[in-house]
């Protein structure tokens, strides 16, 4: 399991307006493309210096494809990164202010302290 790689996905998608929309509309395609082209990219370096060892586990890949933020929370993905990206993708679908954020909390209500470890 690679909490770091989950975070790297959330981080690189959240900071790119095109990727935010692409991940919202075509999650399976985006996750597959990202794992092939971005997972091992050493940020700010050219491709000849890519890392060689980073890959998602099957359950991590599935959680990302299914936009399954409760499972990502359970895996220890950084909650700030997950929240920020999912607000960007889905807040627009709700009429009331903060309705998505409140539903998000409710969907995590089965978690109690201590929360999953987010150390990377």
């Amino acid at each position: 399991m690679s909490t770091y790689l989950l975070n790297k996905f959330l981080f690189t998608v959240d900071r790119d307006p095109d990727l935010v929309e692409r991940y919202r509309e075509e999650p399976a395609e985006t996750v597959a493309w990202w794992e092939q082209h971005m997972a091992n990219k050493l940020l700010n370096c050219h491709g000849g210096e890519d890392s060689t060892w980073l890959a998602f586990d099957d359950d991590e890949r599935t959680a990302l494809i299914e936009h399954d933020y409760p499972t990502l929370f359970g895996m220890g993905a950084h909650p700030f990164l997950t929240l920020t990206l999912f607000i960007a993708m889905f807040e627009r679908d709700y009429d009331e202010p903060l309705a998505f954020q409140k539903e998000y909390a409710q969907k995590l209500s089965h978690f109690s302290l201590p929360y999953p470890d987010i150390t990377t």
Binding site: F73, H78, P79, F80, L81, T82, L83, L98, Q101, K102, Y104, A105, Q106, L108, S109, H110, F111, Y115
Partner: peptide, 9 residues
């Protein structure tokens, strides 16, 4: 709380 069950109370 950010991204957890106690957020936005």
């Amino acid at each position: 709380e950010l991204g957890g069950p106690r957020q936005f109370g």
